[in-house]
Write a protein that binds this DNA or RNA. Structure first.
Lengths: 333, 333
DNA sequence: TGATAGTATGGCAACGTTGCCATATGGGCA
DNA sequence: TGCCCATATGGCAACGTTGCCATACTATCA
């Protein structure tokens, strides 16, 4: 920058104004400076900028890893949204089991990120949360959230997503509709299950708890086992709603082995809409508006920075039902 | 840091030495300083560190987007490898079509990253490449590479991967083995196709070019169309090797519709091993040693930084064949 | 005994920007 | 005419560290 100033014969300050496009600069000098920048191939040093201006244009993103790629997609959505407004994202993917995520937060704080997004992390205690907000770093939590001062949240409309999926099934005449999900130890899971129950209730279907199959974790193997369990019943369900596309993968594999055809013999609906379009047959699934989610997360972050003391907000991220015809009409005999 | 020095009654320099764990500090003073750090919750400022030490501990990663999630996985591998050695990764995912990736490189340079990894980006011209290496920034290219001074490369053993997959099929007696791939406009695609041809040759199988189905891009839809094309032949192939799991997804969907059973009626092998384990039935696929890949990429980067003038290296990333039984033994009648 | 090496500590400038203040000029307006 | 405001430019300190140099003490060895 010193070189640029020397070459173009203006002061450091003026060069700075051209680089960061603020303040008054006459067209003439601007030309001169821009020419010098082009000629030398000068690229400003964001590290120094960050130090002096106390603004790094970096967003930290802490997320868990999961083989259905949902979080990778969220990550991508956050990235895109951030890039759109001139921010970059430092992403940390944590295995659920290893608990060193507090160190990761320290690392992000050390980098002086302008904000932190935490996606779906269940281990959140008040103390650590305050470590972030106590330093005036905006914090947004996505999917699995926790309330806190100065903490905004994005929650998925899981209840409605599940409800509509099950209504979609019930509308087509099914009565024995099974549910495959994860142990309801968290609002996310509870909401999905409740959506399922309420939709059944609304449709006047009986709730048969033996048709509810819960597992420790979302996974292909769990889907297989759920299928074995449900399909071997004396009276198997005619439709199954699964709270993750991963379950669907496993379920379909068992169907394939048993030559059970979807949707002729059984109807299926998945959740997340990450894999369902790739399966055979393609499966109807509840999807998340990920682009919105990313944009909302970033915009919550930035608006918090502009107005630290505004009250906490909770944004609902809507779902959609991607109908791929994996639910057939069913007439009870 | 000034506070820490004041509280613990030592000089700034000594605090610095404790923070970055280098230089001589007596146990006694170290204790004092560490206590002060704990008490105040001090977290060092990596921005300032980066400015002064000219080392940001950041790695830039530029990668393309692709719906089969291969690049997300590579991204994750690079992340993990970087974290292991105390680096963070700034990831940019670019849509293939938009050409503003040069700006992204500028952005990474502006951040003064300690190195840049470019995964699978086809648009690489010498000038832009020199923009990076000309600034003494280590550059590693993965999968789709290009030679350049001070540029290291990681190439996938595509030839061997394809070769072994096809041999796996031929070993089981198949004679009419089709190939579904992408137009061979790049070494990656050429190598896979050549592996296919050579394996057929070695096994004494005829090469029937009408069994080679090439497409503009990897995709589910393309897989469907390939299936329509190949399965409607008078004499369809008994086995198909596809250069991407995405093709497999589409292919399987068509099989499902036509009630063609895998592997009874037709044998399939995929590539990338990203989705194949989730399909029904699970499909044998050629996989990449991603953890190695990530580690190699990072280690190439760091070693280049330590010895800028060493000659360029090319590392071969080996593949494996994940056998999931989607190839049956076949006896020609 | 003096030289040398290892250990321990502090002072100070510098990294490359930006924020703030000072200053100057010209035009519009009461 | 005098005042204010928008425009234009530059000087200088500061952001929070680290690198380098200077200094001092102790132990070891020829």
């Amino acid at each position: 920058m010193v070189d640029i100033a020397r070459i173009s014969g203006v002061s450091l300050t003026t060069v700075g104004r051209v680089v960061r496009k603020n303040g008054y600069v006459s067209g003439e000098k601007r030309e001169l400076v821009e020419k010098a920048i082009r000629d030398t191939g000068y690229i400003p040093n964001r590290v120094a900028q960050g130090l002096k201006s106390r603004k790094t244009n970096l967003i930290g993103h802490l997320t868990i890893f999961n083989s259905n790629m949902l979080y990778e997609r969220i990550s991508k959505a956050v990235n895109s949204a951030a890039h759109e407004v001139g921010y970059q994202v430092l992403t940390y993917t944590v295995e659920l089991k290893d608990g060193n995520w507090e160190n990761i937060l320290d690392e992000l704080i050390a980098r002086r990120v302008d904000g932190i997004i935490i996606t779906s992390h269940p281990y959140l205690d008040e103390r650590v949360l305050r470590k972030v907000t106590g330093r005036n770093i905006p914090l947004v939590m996505v999917e699995r959230t926790r309330e806190g001062d100065h903490t905004d949240r994005i929650v998925i409309a899981d209840y409605r997503g599940a409800f509509e999926a099950v209504r979609h099934i019930a509308d087509r005449g099914h009565r024995r509709i099974a549910y495959v999900g994860r142990e309801a130890d968290h609002p996310v899971e509870r909401m999905r299950l409740r959506g399922y129950r309420d939709a059944l209730k609304e449709a006047g279907r009986p709730i048969d708890s033996s048709l509810i199959s819960l597992w420790d974790t979302y996974g292909v193997e769990e889907g297989r086992r759920a299928a074995e369990e449900l399909l071997n019943r004396d009276v198997p369900p005619t439709a199954v709603f699964m709270a993750s596309d991963l379950f669907v993968c496993g379920f379909l594999q068992v169907c394939y082995e048993k030559r059970i055809i979807v949707p002729d013999d059984i109807s299926l609906v998945g959740y997340d809409d990450t894999l369902s379009m790739m399966l055979s047959p393609p499966i109807t699934s509840v999807g998340l508006e990920l682009e919105n989610l990313g944009r909302e997360a970033v915009s919550l972050l930035l608006s918090r920075r502009d107005d630290w003391d505004r009250e906490s907000r909770e944004i609902i991220n809507e779902t959609y039902l991607a109908d791929r015809g994996s639910v057939r009409s069913w007439k009870e005999v």
